[in-house]
Design a protein around this nucleic acid. Structure first.
Lengths: 224, 224
DNA sequence: GTTGCATGGTGCAAAGATGCACTACATGGA
DNA sequence: TCCATGTAGTGCATCTTTGCACCATGCAAC
């Protein structure tokens, strides 16, 4: 009678719809910025391309810039990320997961990474905002690591770890872009996206593996 | 500054969204019926395929069957169709326009016609409902023609004209299906859809041309 | 038959999207 | 300088979608 047993894959229609709208707005924001520059299109046009009203756009993003960067209004503030704090994983893994989760939210996991970096370098406004965001994230992450590991706020290890994660993140992204640039990887369909994402994830994991060796002496002393 | 001058093509986001949802629901309803039969899928699955909730489906269609037939809840009852009554066009043209408008609403203008006829003949429930609908439409149309032409309700000419239109409609659809069946028209992409629609429209116009000759002696006597 | 279960269909209150009016600001003439 | 215009962003009332509880029906197991 039922030809489909696995119907409800990702929860309710409300959430699926929201994700789809976020995806559409971010993707079109980047496409339009690449094609016309950040000042070359209006929010009105972006909203229309994504199939929502102008007003709805501002329910999803505080500013036009944020749409390009993938900074959602419903983002959990990093300093409230209980998932990371409560994760049973070892610290390096938890950090890697957090990083990947962030990239998923901003839609910069696969081929988008290269596009994203392009945009950052072509629009100074975006770069500026991104640096603000990263600064804030570094601070929040330090506090988060301290909480997770049972350290005092401002503990040097937490600060160093947070900085190191930033470094790993940046390194991973650059490394990925360089490698993609080096080997053609003639992509025609979106079928390539999955493979691209896998390549990127592999690079991230390779880089975060460094963290394992550097962190373990310290982390085994804390909270365990 | 603006790279796009023709932004607002079809009004607000609300209407565009509604049309898209109707289109998705009808198309998926037909696809699922073709693949699994009318009883082979649930409203839940149909709604999910179209990206809306089950409850929303019932905001768009009274019943599952109606979705396949393209009978919307917000359809203007035919006997309230002021567009037709107030149209300045000659009667045969107005009738043809009304017919094409109806087909647009039910999404059976192009390649869908053949699919639609297939479904009608494969599911007796659909055929039954369709005949009900057509019966009602014939009655309403007769009343509408009478109003438009300033005739008394039940005027024989109005009744005959309504019946004739039903005949022209049926003839057009069958003729189209036969011709498509005869010539391969290897369609691969949706690029063919536009051409298919044009072929169908041409057939409709050819058939309604008969109405011109038959109606004009009478209509020139009325209301003019 | 009757008990359970899947599905069709509806009422209702909460959440989300939209239209509209409004402010702020930047830019480019008179 | 001052004004007109275009666009970013926000407050608010209204409309739409959604989740959920609910009932009716048909069908299969017992």
């Amino acid at each position: 009678m039922h030809y489909m047993e696995n119907s409800a894959s990702t929860g309710g229609a409300r959430e699926r719809r929201k994700e789809a709208t976020y995806a559409a707005l971010i993707d079109h924001a980047r496409r339009l910025t690449a094609e016309h520059g950040l000042a070359g299109f209006t929010v009105e046009e972006l909203a229309e391309a994504a199939g929502v009203s102008r007003r709805t756009f501002f329910n999803y993003f505080q500013t036009k810039d944020d749409a390009v960067l993938g900074i959602r209004v419903d983002d959990v503030p990093l300093d409230a990320d209980t998932v990371f704090v409560d994760s049973p994983e070892p610290l390096p893994t938890a950090l890697k997961d957090l990083f990947l989760r962030l990239l998923t939210s901003t839609r910069t996991l696969g081929h988008d990474v290269a596009v994203f970096m392009e945009l950052l370098h072509s629009e100074t406004a975006l770069m500026k905002r991104m640096m603000q965001i990263n600064e804030q994230r570094r601070r929040d992450l330090a506090a988060l690591i301290a909480r997770r590991e049972g350290l005092a706020a401002g503990d040097p290890f937490a600060l160093a770890a947070a900085g190191f994660v930033g470094h790993l993140a940046m390194t991973s992204m650059h490394e990925f872009v360089d490698e993609e640039h080096a080997s053609p990887h003639d992509d025609e369909a979106e079928q390539a996206e999955e493979a691209t994402r896998a390549r990127f994830t592999r690079i991230v994991e390779a880089n975060f593996a460094h963290a394992e060796r550097l962190f373990s002496p310290t982390t085994t002393n804390a909270k365990d």
